[in-house]
Design a protein around this nucleic acid. Sequence first.
DNA 1: TCGTTATCGGTATTCAAGTAGCGATATGAA
DNA 2: TTCATATCGCTACTTGAATACCGATAACGA
Lengths: 213, 213
Amino acid sequence: MENPRENPLPLPTIRRYPIFLRAIGEMMDAGEAFISSSVLAERLGLDPVLTRKDLAMAGVPGRPRRGYPAEELRAAINRALGWDSATDAVLVGTGSLGSALLGYAGFKEQNLSIVAAFDANPRLAGSTVHGVKVRPLAEMARLVRRLKVHLAILTVPTAAAQACAETLVEAGVRGILNFSSAQLSVPEGVIVQNVDLAQPLAVLSHAIARMES
Amino acid sequence: MENPRENPLPLPTIRRYPIFLRAIGEMMDAGEAFISSSVLAERLGLDPVLTRKDLAMAGVPGRPRRGYPAEELRAAINRALGWDSATDAVLVGTGSLGSALLGYAGFKEQNLSIVAAFDANPRLAGSTVHGVKVRPLAEMARLVRRLKVHLAILTVPTAAAQACAETLVEAGVRGILNFSSAQLSVPEGVIVQNVDLAQPLAVLSHAIARMES
DNA sequence: TCGTTATCGGTATTCAAGTAGCGATATGAA
DNA sequence: TTCATATCGCTACTTGAATACCGATAACGA
């Protein structure tokens, strides 16, 4: 099925796809034309069966004793993630984390280009961070609307997050990657994905605490 | 049961705990002495029953029509996460992401203090980032051993990650928060928690792609 | 004092994801 | 040409977490 709506991918599968894409890219660079689930799994330390099921979800048929055609597989996964066509995004909040994300190379791999950055601090406006010009927050609504940007990366302090989100949604943003710890409330049809750096730390320190007990 | 080994907390619960801690802290600042699961759930946009089950796992008994005693609850959750006593960590790789993490306030909330930072680039050595002095990589093994640090945050380029990990483990590190996209291989007893910024972006863009299809 | 009710805490059910088992098939070697 | 085998792809089975349900209880109001 081509229509993603009929293809409800398991959430864990979606999370593994970016990892697969990186490995597939490296294997293609090494000259491989076919990707077998066993080799890929070995490389990533995953279960081969689980890997095969994930790859099968992309809808590209594999061949016994060869694997999946690399180029088609990569294209299918990219399509499933909506990374097949270039997507524009804006970044709001050029503090230390926001600045770091402006320089994060991974976004480019995913056909995501950050076309503008904003900050509430007027002293930062006009400066350039990793090649992106920082603009005052007041220009955000107008520019987002004009550029028809649908995706925003939110790296503002928690207290400012809800107000920013509302402005962004009002200007046409459909998806927000929220790095603040605010619980954003947005209208239906807008998707918020929270990123919380404390979560992996919690998992790690709990595991260590358990081992030492 | 006090012993965490007998208390295998569900992984999703552990991930929600940091969120709960923040909210509980805010409610305590507002003068609340008791935290009810329904109020907490409302505030965080979660299911009240799910929230109550999570809180129950901490082992603190609640009271009908009141809720859980705030101070005890917070202490119990912190204990479950191993955040009850201060933990030292080192950070390796002071690129843009590493620098941002040095300034991340959330770590302090979790009793985590980054006692040293290292970078392979000798030109960076000696500089100070967010109050932490950057040292050359060559000093890492010795210092980690001397300070008896058990936790490391790894923000080096993917190509350098495995070598750094090995040095750290050799020097006594038990847990690694890995921000690189390398698949680290470490000896048994060492825990690696991977953090991949591409994953939440994948979830978000897939969701948007599905809606627009 | 006594009922009402918000909240806890346990049990049961459902659902999603991971795991296991197994037949089908194309490839490569004998 | 024939056979051995790596790999796919399908169908259970198991596990773990979320959801639903329901009884118990302590606080509050009448």
